[in-house]
Design a protein around this nucleic acid. Sequence first.
DNA 1: GTTCCACTTGCACACAGTTCAAGTCGTTCC
DNA 2: GGAACGACTTGAACTGTGTGCAAGTGGAAC
Lengths: 238, 238
Amino acid sequence: MPRDTLNRDQIVKTATDLLDAEGLDGLNMRALGKRLGSAATAVYWHVGSKENLIALAGDQAWNEITLPDLATTDWRTAATQMATELHAMLTRHPWLVQAFGSFVVFGPGKARHDDRSLAVFEAAGFTEAQADQAAASVFTFVLGNALGPAAADSLAKRLSRDSGNAEELMRASMAKAHEIAAQYPRLRARLETASAEYAAAPAETFEFGLAALLDGLEARLAPSTSVRPGTSAAREES
Amino acid sequence: MPRDTLNRDQIVKTATDLLDAEGLDGLNMRALGKRLGSAATAVYWHVGSKENLIALAGDQAWNEITLPDLATTDWRTAATQMATELHAMLTRHPWLVQAFGSFVVFGPGKARHDDRSLAVFEAAGFTEAQADQAAASVFTFVLGNALGPAAADSLAKRLSRDSGNAEELMRASMAKAHEIAAQYPRLRARLETASAEYAAAPAETFEFGLAALLDGLEARLAPSTSVRPGTSAAREES
DNA sequence: GTTCCACTTGCACACAGTTCAAGTCGTTCC
DNA sequence: GGAACGACTTGAACTGTGTGCAAGTGGAAC
């Protein structure tokens, strides 16, 4: 019977919890060690470095995404579902978006997701090269959408960590933004109707843009070559 | 005659140079001080904090973007031009994309850009609310597109800073990615035709996705309400 | 019971952001 | 012309964080 010991999965899980709670800047090895009930440096034996730990946690997050079954779902629905799932996942883990900008996150989890994403667009009737571009377009659209909220989340967490009166600082920075925006007619118009720049129903904006993008992609299919569910896609691992 | 002294603009300019050359992680106050010919701490008197410095440099970058003249350009061309300019700017300053994920970058430069972006879609015939969503969609699409390259750039710079044999580490990490990708049929197919995941003409993918998105947006205009150049848009500051 | 090896620990180093008290040097006011 | 002022600059030092290292520690295998 091995002694009760740390293991990689447990570390990655705990790190994910900490990242969700405290953000990317909020994660430090000593805090992680404390939460794991061991010395900070013990973690290094299992994951090698902080960067690698984040890469592991990041890749794991992709496995939370439920992939659509192409045999029973038409491509448009499947694409929307995947984009929505990804969007939700990135909202749960805003730090992943930040990590994505700092180093390359690519592991089994993302590979699983990417492959299915390509499958969706190939099932739609795109050529390989087109499916590549279509999948990349939708992916980057969703990623870009998550960037703003990720920044806001990161900022909020940092403020509430550093100082007691996070609310006030937040309000001050918002006020300064309003002051600047008020100098431009269209931005000012937005300020008068809504309270904050991003406050205008971000979820609807996401759906709007996604639908528009998918429309545009659909139009790039050879005319009336639309493929019915189950017609061309082979079944694979789900 | 004031003594030859530091000033904010000069600091921001130098910081931008350093950021372009070394990336977001590569910027540190002592290196910046050295490049400015003064002590690291002198910078603090002018910009307050590193975060604020980056925010200043980040906002300044938006001013590099040439805005289209709506009186002489149809909205579709204008939108494409703005997106392309933004894309190019983010390629020149990959650190901005990272900064965008960490804290809110909003200043006069971005406000100037955002306002014109809204103008483009209002000129197209969108309602205010729709223009909001359309502008946000295009913006996030471009931003998302820049995220991958930004990560690659950041990683490359960090590797070449930390160790002599950056090439080898890069190759190793690439090889691991290939190994994972090879387990999925469609990813494997890509590996066999192209050399790397993102190597397949990223510029074309950007244009493809942008055109698709704009098509989708155009379809959301009330049918045949397209607006000719100069018809509805008032002239404003350029 | 000895040896071994997977793991853990505390110490310590390096480096980065930032603060602070003490300068320095033009300018301004008498 | 000199003294007080204030805009800047400086070097030392504090803090927090990632990480290497050498010395443990305890279960398992022979």
